[in-house]
Design a protein around this nucleic acid. Structure first.
Lengths: 113, 113
DNA sequence: CGACCATAGTCAGTCTGTCGATATATATCG
DNA sequence: CGATATATATCGACAGACTGACTATGGTCG
């Protein structure tokens, strides 16, 4: 197992694609929803991430359509992308479990809020 | 709320300090435990993170001792460091909740796992 | 004695993601 | 018509984290 070290925007892209194919621009909105408006994906970040993830085989293109004269290029998560996302999720879960346990000890020991 | 964008080693340092002061070298071991041996902190990473976190007021030095003729320099989490770690934890929790929900849909919708 | 562990650091370099700016095209709203 | 929103995409620059290699000292083990 290699080091993943995924940043938030990248995580958002994968997560947004986890429930079905989407086109690039739509991901910007999805990332906003996923994070309660915290993360506003920038286009530069988005397409760079998409390229990178494709070259790593985590995301694949999934057809194009023309809607109202505007091109939409779709992307989907590959199986390997889904697996990576799952791994990342469990890794994070483990980390936060530990962090919370320790924070609880700290709160118990030192009171205050 | 600003963008934190913390990487794993940094997170580990904060989490390891959350339940009480520790000296630098001890953090290497702690990080290993915290992550089931996944993360092996490098000294360079460690002291760089410690410096950075101190300059951000998230970690403070907490005295020194000489044990068996060897110097130990202790560090502790500041209140503001603890708050940041809490924020980071909730942020991650939200992210993984969403990601898991979407991964579930994907599994339900389609093929294999 | 020499090797090795514990403990403290420093520093130059690398990597890589993210950002901001820029460009292009169409549809729509006022 | 011009602005704005949808949609695509590229590119250079920047910041920051991480790594690897190095130095140093005091124990301990063989």
């Amino acid at each position: 197992m290699k080091n993943v070290d995924m940043r938030e925007p990248t995580f958002m892209v994968l997560a947004a694609l986890a429930n079905g194919r989407k086109h690039g621009y739509a991901l910007i909105g999805e990332a906003g929803e996923l994070s309660n408006g915290r993360v506003k994906l920038k286009v530069g970040t988005l397409y760079a991430a998409l390229d990178r993830l494709q070259s790593q085989g985590l995301v694949a293109s999934a057809g194009e359509e023309v809607i109202d004269g505007r091109l939409r290029r779709y992307y989907e998560l590959t199986d390997s992308g889904a697996m990576l996302l799952e791994d990342e999720v469990s890794r994070l879960e483990g980390n936060i479990r530990q962090a919370k346990a320790r924070l609880r000890l700290r709160a118990a020991a030192g009171r205050v809020s």
